[in-house]
Simulated scan of single mutants.
Amino acid sequence: MKILIADDDPSSILYLQDMLGEWGYEVEVAVDGNAAAEILRRSDGPLLAILDSMMPGMDGIDVCRGIRQSDTERYVYMIILTSRVESEFIVAAMNAGADDFISKPFNDEEMRVRVRAGRRIVELGEQLRRRASRDALTNIYNRGAIIEILEKELSRQGRSQHAVSILFCDVDNFKAINDTHGHLAGDEVLRVLARRMAATLRPYDSFGRYGGEEMLGVFPDCGLEGALEVAERMRAAVAEAPVKTEFGDIDVTVSIGLATVDKDQTCKLATLLQRADDALYRAKANGKNCITIAH
């Protein structure tokens, strides 16, 4: 797990770095409060932080307050490191959003157990957040989560003017698979296909189950050419080998409808989804196992 140390004292940073590294943590360092806040707001930033109470720029309490007031969905567990022990300071830190505090000079074992407690809380929160956003059958995003991701990308696209692409993917002849092999086989087909297709995505792409056998992919900072490459990898990953089930091997293909909002355009969510859905319908009409681009 990554942990942030925010302190302007080089000797304190080195000591904490060595100690936390020995305990198995990946350490990131900030030497002032502004840098700490920026790191913690990153989508891949540490979820555990040790913040010195007094730093240049924003102090530790300011960092806590800023992170709690931000719109990030990730919960960051923040520990204030301070030489102040008066109750007024502790109350102010907790009210600002700090989770715990450690007095200077600190005891190494106390630091270890407090960091470990924070880690347990963070890991539990991440497990609960993941369960709430994942489809129970396929373990990709559920409908609500993938739509929320798309909404955020379209909002970001409107501000920063970058391209966004989406695809609708539908399993060909899925009703026939269920009728011939049974619904348990159909469930296994969906699980395997979701795993194959998700494995072809870029790290910053998102993929979710929209409903039934239909899935939605969201590709940020991705124009039509790049989206076509990703979509073709997904289509090929499905068609390259049968799905092995307890009820026999099942040949499966998918049809894909692709829609793009270029960097100089804007598009409402419902309109973009409809364009991709119309393209998917044409892919089905064109013989299936193919990709069709929205008009």
Score class of each variant (00 low, 15 high):
A259S: 12
A279N: 05
G248T: 09
T260G: 09
V243A: 04
Q274H: 03
D264H: 04
D249I: 03
K268C: 05
L258W: 13
G248S: 01
D262W: 07
T245K: 09
E246H: 06
L269E: 15
A276W: 14
G257I: 00
K244T: 09
G257Q: 02
D251R: 00
D262K: 06
Q265P: 05
I250E: 13
K268I: 05
K268P: 08
L258N: 13
V252Y: 10
K268L: 15
D278E: 10
K268Y: 08
A279Y: 01
I250L: 08
D278V: 14
D278Y: 13
T260M: 11
L273G: 07
E246G: 09
L272G: 13
I250D: 02
D278R: 01
T266W: 08
K244V: 11
I256D: 07
L258M: 05
T260C: 04
V261H: 10
D251L: 03
D249T: 12
V254P: 11
D264S: 11
V261F: 00
I256Q: 10
T260P: 06
L258F: 14
D278N: 14
L272M: 07
D264I: 12
V261R: 14
G248F: 06
T260I: 11
D249R: 07
L273A: 15
A270M: 02
R275E: 04
C267A: 10
A276R: 10
D262T: 03
V252A: 08
D264R: 11
G248I: 04
T245W: 04
L269Q: 13
F247L: 09
Q274T: 07
I256H: 00
A276M: 09
R275N: 14
D277P: 09
L258P: 15
K263G: 15
L269G: 14
L269T: 05
L273K: 06
K268E: 09
T253S: 01
D277I: 05
C267E: 09
I250H: 09
S255V: 13
C267F: 07
D249E: 11
K244M: 12
T253I: 01
K263C: 15
R275P: 03
T266L: 13
Q274M: 08
V261S: 07
A270Y: 00
Q265G: 14
T266Q: 09
K268N: 13
L272E: 11
Q265K: 14
V243N: 12
T245E: 02
A270S: 15
S255R: 01
F247Y: 10
L273W: 12
K268T: 10
T245L: 05
D277W: 06
Q274N: 05
C267Q: 14
R275Y: 10
D277S: 10
V254R: 10
V254D: 11
K263N: 14
V243T: 03
D277H: 01
K263R: 13
D262H: 06
K268G: 12
I256E: 05
K244P: 06
V252I: 04
T245P: 06
I250F: 05
A259Q: 01
E246S: 04
T266V: 15
D249N: 01
G248W: 03
G257R: 00
A276C: 15
C267G: 03
C267D: 11
T245D: 02
D251A: 11
D262M: 05
T253L: 09
T260F: 09
D278C: 06
F247T: 06
L273Q: 00
